[in-house]
Amino acid sequence: MKQGRLAWLKHLVLLPLAGLFAFPFYWLLVMSTGRTSDIFGSPPRLIPGTEFFANLGRLLESVNFLQAFANSAVVSISATLLTVAVAALSGFVFATFRFPGRNWLFGILLATMTLPTGVMLVPTLQIYVDLGWINTYLPLLVPGAASAFGIFWMRQAARESVQYEVIEAARVDGASFLRVFWHVGLPALRPAIAGFTVFQFMWNWNEYLWPLLVLNDSNLYTLPVALQQLNGSYGTSDYPVVMVATLLATIPLIVLFLLFRRQVMSSVNSGAVKG
């Protein structure tokens, strides 16, 4: 009985909160189905309109949406897999293996997160030019492949969920380095890997500045660059089209989240103990 009342109380807190969080997304949905004059009318329209396909038509007319979508998918998937793989392995090793200089190396890694990277734009672009990487996807894949943030996260997750006895047992059994990672590390890191994958994919998916600077050929454009083409020199005039575009661009992120949500949530320990 007490349990039931408590759950009811939880919903009383969570439900209005969730409504507040979802509202701007809902409004994005409404805006993408209306006209500019609906969006800014008084009172503002709060139920979806019927203009979605008209807006979509204007979007497809002015931007090569499908091509950019495909490009973004290729770049974001490759970049994310690379980053997550490197982060999982490096983070796992940092957390569970001992080797000389480990703490120093990890300290350096942490310190790089505070470096003023914003102003490194100029020399970094020069490096890409010298490497002949302009107009390729390499600048979007390689430099970001090892993320200090990701390695840090995976290290912390491994410290929580990897059981030292399991590793010792595996080593006594003569399991190789990679086998330990594969059979002990990966299962234990599953929730963190799933969470990091969702975020890393999202950051890659939304990246604007570097694709703009390194890609010259419009056929190679990723989605954010292509969508920026909708604006003029002074700003947006056609709000509904921009809204349709951002809404469509959001769908892969939501799908990914829904797919990975269970991985983030489900308990790892029952599995990890069994190996």
């Binding site: 490759s78 897999l81 690379l82 107009n135 390729t136 894949l141």
Partner: peptide, 11 residues
């Protein structure tokens, strides 16, 4: 998948 994508994406 990533390896194959990487191989194919040089412009």
């Amino acid at each position: 998948l990533a390896t194959s994508a990487l191989a194919g994406c040089g412009s």
